[in-house]
Design a binder for these strands. Structure first.
Lengths: 194, 194
DNA sequence: ACTATTTCTTAATCTAGTTCAAGATACTTC
DNA sequence: GAAGTATCTTGAACTAGATTAAGAAATAGT
């Protein structure tokens, strides 16, 4: 398993010379996970920033009634994990699990800090990564308040068409903040109206 | 009006020498806004990153039925504005308005880019700023799905007690994703139960 | 101080979305 | 390939929260 996919990804944002790329590549820990396996467990302190090379992961919160709430999905080229836990060193409230057999690259907390200190370009890379994620998150909050469930489902499908192959509908419902039963009803209405 | 409050703020995250601080201070544009005045209008391309020195602003989205949805409040020490519009140069879907007479510091887009290029410390400052905001935003999304409106209201009050002095209840309702009428009902229930 | 406007509350009615329970499809695994 | 498990759908009964409309309380403007 090679790590060059991450280098391709980072090149889209910042420029690095060959030596820098070599070093950056070297600090990632490649890992294969099977469908259903955990990468991080809630309750534990997150140790890694998780980059997805192939497959699909989901990060979710389990509430007091043992209901899961999907925080985010991550397919090839995406990062996931619990930023709060890893940066503040507190136990995570999220778990991260594979929805399909996946290849991930783990970036240990210390290695990330080292990269940030050593290469200003990496600081920029993460700044831009977070900046984009922030825009998406705020949009999701506002859509959650301003749009009805059926509209949210339609935009979800338009925005992440590739996820349909990996993600069971019940998790999409959870991501949208509705029950699987209601999503089912929405889907039928959409089918009938065309 | 002095800009030293921002320097105090940035010192909490990164170290700068006196010369750097001087320069950074010099690129901010101080502005006083009265209650109700706009700092940015939706439909226009956002030109400034907005830092609040005193008072209180809110950034909100207006939907197709002319309903406002509060994206965020910002009191002293907070940043606000539309990151997507300013970074991508597209018209903003958010407006930013003063909820009280306020002093703000505007950081023009070009100046921010200059600061980022000139001082790696600034790149770090914004990386950490965005990182923390990301954690908060994701938490808000999950709470929106996992917690009922009354719980969300209670945690809001605990988390941002200082906002009560500035923010009319109808905007708090909007921030929480409920109607003012329903918030009113919640508040009465809470009063009665103690 | 008086008036106008905005904000907040109350109550009745309504609806988007939930819950519960059961059956239908698909997917695993041995 | 049969049996077991997880996912998806359907429908009936329910509820958290929305809508509408009106009055009360607070704020702002002159």
């Amino acid at each position: 398993m090679n790590t060059s996919s991450f280098i391709t990804n980072i090149r889209k944002t910042v420029n690095l010379n060959e030596e820098e790329e070599k070093y950056i590549e070297s600090v990632f820990v490649p890992l294969r996970v099977k469908q259903g396996e955990f990468v991080e467990h809630s309750g534990e302190i997150t140790r890694y920033f998780i980059y997805v090379q192939s497959g699909c992961l989901m990060t979710y919160f389990t509430d007091k009634d043992a209901f899961d709430h999907v925080a985010q999905f991550a397919t090839a080229g995406w990062w996931t994990g619990d930023l709060h836990s890893i940066t503040k060193g507190v136990p995570s409230i999220y778990s991260t699990r594979a929805l399909a057999d996946s290849e991930v690259l783990l970036l240990p907390k210390n290695s990330q800090e080292e990269l940030l200190n050593k290469y200003p370009q990496m600081e920029r890379y993460f700044r831009i990564l977070y900046q984009n994620a922030l825009v998406t998150h705020l949009h999701r909050i506002i859509q959650g308040h301003a749009a009805a469930a059926d509209e949210r489902y339609i935009s979800f499908r338009e925005k992440y068409p590739s996820l349909e192959q990996y993600v069971p509908l019940k998790y999409i419902a959870s991501y949208l903040g509705i029950t699987p039963e209601f999503l089912s009803k929405i889907r039928r209405r959409l089918m009938e109206s065309r």
